[in-house]
Design a protein around this nucleic acid. Structure first.
Lengths: 410, 410
DNA sequence: GATTTTTTTCTCGACAGTCGAGAAATTTAG
DNA sequence: CTAAATTTCTCGACTGTCGAGAAAAAAATC
């Protein structure tokens, strides 16, 4: 449904635009903002003085002028305008990071997490404690924390911060909104981890000059299998989604998956599945909870030495991934695929299967193989994705509420 | 990438909004437009007088006043403001419809089409002739045709009116843009047929009061298998896509499909596939080009009498569809599924397989069966989809170019 | 038939926002 | 010390929306 526009909306939009340009390029002068946004100098003046009054941006100290003419006055976000807490939940630990409004990391620590699958309630309690701890360590007042951005593997509700299904807790839903609301007035958002990787890669692509980025899929290989898709929207920045790829049906009545269903992609391509297949354990065996990477490294070594059974295990994993990716491509459009996660160390063994699996579908035969690239540093990408996403959410919120509120009271 | 806003943009948006409300609800009075759009009466005055000057809308003759007070002046689109030609390409015919700007059908005829697969060039020539014929019959000047909206089964380029793959011509691409540009200055758009069905169903859902429509998938069953997905966007109306569903991989190294690949969904659920399976012909047999529906009716009758082999054929088809739908749901979100097309007459035979196929995936086991409804009148929905889509494109174009142009010259 | 009531449309001034041009500020070059 | 260069700031013009109230026009009432 279309909705009406107004002149106030124009100002809001352009304010967000100014903030996003500032975020992307760091401290900028009046003129540069004008160049990047396409807005006139007069408009930039109006918007920046408003944002400055609202204590959202500040003039930086005029550094030694380079070149003649009136020296530039750089504008930047006020670091202390607000803070962000990033919570990255991985299979064996939870990492807490405190970040200021300019995107600078202030404090960080990790906490081990137990592998107790019944401990959803206890886990939530641990997260609450962790959040309070990082706040306490920093001596920042709680109201200054504007956003808590959480990521996890698994399936996430698209509108609310509810973890619908996760590798550890299964279908024991975790509602972070209601869990944190008592203690925090900060907004809470939750995203799938691989979605953030995709978002970060997409943002990097858009930075490249000249390249007209359209879409991209990130595939994360590890104990579980995740996929994130990012598409350039027609007007509203990027559009991202995190499908339930690891548990998409690979083969009806196939191997038993951790989730209890048979035939999921993960039941062929997850670390435990490769292990199971390499040891020729029946496919309906209940999968191992956790597989040390060293164990898998041994199998990979054997496969590289030419042993058939472990090589076949990796090949089967690749096939499942390739078939799944081909199905994804049938439903979307041709797009490059970036593979990340600890599983990339076995890419040499997986590759043939992936390509064969992709090649079995009409779309790939017709349009050709999608570009596949291997991207290391998944952890960095996850954090980068958090920052991109969370800080732009904060910008939006600040403009929507903050400016008017402060303007009205000031 | 975000882009700057301006006050002119506000007027454009609101003009389009007024036109779309007028389109949705028919002729409306000043006050009603104000109610529907949320814009103030003064703004409505400004916009409507502008549109009236530009000869896009007109005041209708003041009909007998109903109730006291100053009688209402109804506003409506000027029928002769511009025209639309709808071209519906189906497997055995091409239907041409001439529609005025108010959405009223003026003329329509169908032309048989040959099944010559090598005749891509000849087919294009036939379409060009058909377009000239409907124009000639109507005595409307060619410049008044603002848009040619074409639909076909098969795979369509997402940005340009290029038919990338079709059941009849295979990978012989047809570029309607370059084919029609010499003779027509009208804009040309091309959409997948099932996408239009989904769009029409989505629009109907949005009309329903109170129901908060989120998303919907339309599955068209016939000689080929099509899927359209419509999702309510966050701001910009609806977002629709037409995946290459019929040729998504169902089973690696499975039955031979018309497209030459093995294991496509269509190779199990298309009419020819059901026939092949019912006659126990080997699955790698080259499929029949065209199957008379009467033939399939016979098989269905036998299946309903309890014969095992034909019943199994339908069940296999259902399984392929169910598995495919479950994969689609894994990649999107839970959404209702509307089944249309000639294949709906066999829904009683397909149903069990579809449900079983759906139930084999994690997502369905976790979130439950999606709602499935059978919708007849596919033809009507296709045309309705054309109208919805094409007329709103025209509205957009007119506001973008027309108003200013005419204003400037007037 | 004149007046009042009711309803709709039109108009006017206030307010918000953007833009272009030019003034003001401030540093370097000569 | 003056001129040139460059950036920032300010002002008036223009576009757009809104609320209030005037104007229009028909039905109801006296």
């Amino acid at each position: 449904m279309l909705t009406k526009s107004s002149t106030e909306l124009v100002r809001q939009r352009n304010s967000v635009l100014v903030l996003s340009v500032l975020r992307r390029h760091g401290a900028l002068a009046h003129t540069e903002i004008s160049d990047f946004t396409g807005l006139s100098s007069a408009t930039i003046s109006a918007i920046t003085t408003e944002l400055e009054k609202a204590q959202i941006i500040e003039k930086s100290e005029h550094q030694p002028a380079s070149g003649r003419g009136r020296p530039r006055v750089l504008l930047r976000q006020r670091r202390d305008c607000g803070y962000l807490i990033v919570v990255i939940i991985s299979s064996d630990a939870v990492q807490y990071s405190l970040v200021d409004y300019a995107g600078k990391l202030i404090d960080r620590f990790s906490e081990e997490r137990s592998h107790d699958p019944t401990g959803a309630a206890r886990f939530v309690a641990a997260v609450r404690a962790g959040l309070l701890r990082i706040l306490d360590r920093s001596k920042i007042s709680q109201e200054k924390v504007l956003l808590i951005s959480i990521s996890s593997k698994g399936l996430v509700n698209s509108t609310e911060p509810v973890l619908v299904w996760s590798p550890i807790f299964g279908s024991d839903q975790i509602d972070f909104e209601s869990a944190l609301r008592p203690e925090w007035q900060a907004k809470v958002i939750l995203d799938n981890e691989t979605l953030l990787v995709a978002a970060a890669l997409g943002a990097r692509e858009e930075m490249v000059e000249g390249a007209d980025f359209r879409s991209l899929a990130a595939l994360s290989l590890g104990h579980s299998v995740g996929l994130g898709i990012v598409r350039r929207g027609n007007q509203t920045g990027q559009e991202i989604s995190a499908p339930n790829f690891g548990h998409m049906l690979h083969m009806a009545n196939g191997g038993l998956c951790r989730c209890g269903t048979r035939g999921c992609i993960e039941a062929y391509a997850g670390f435990y599945a490769i292990l199971r297949s390499a040891f020729e354990v029946p496919l309906d065996t209940i999968p191992a909870k956790f597989v040390p990477v060293a164990e898998l490294d041994k199998i990979a070594a054997k496969a590289r030495q030419g042993h058939r059974v472990p090589a076949f295990a990796f090949r089967q994993a690749g096939l499942a991934l390739g078939n799944g990716l081909s199905r994804m491509l049938s439903l979307t459009e041709r797009m490059p695929i970036a593979i990340t996660g600890p599983g990339t160390r076995y890419y040499d063994l997986l590759r043939q299967g992936i390509e064969e699996g992709l090649g079995q579908s009409h779309i790939v035969r017709m349009e050709g193989m999608p570009e596949i690239r291997v991207v290391a540093d998944e952890q960095i990408l996850v954090f980068e994705g958090h920052l991109n996403r969370a800080l732009s959410v904060i910008d939006q919120d600040i403009v929507l509420s903050g400016v008017q509120g402060i303007q009205a009271s000031g």
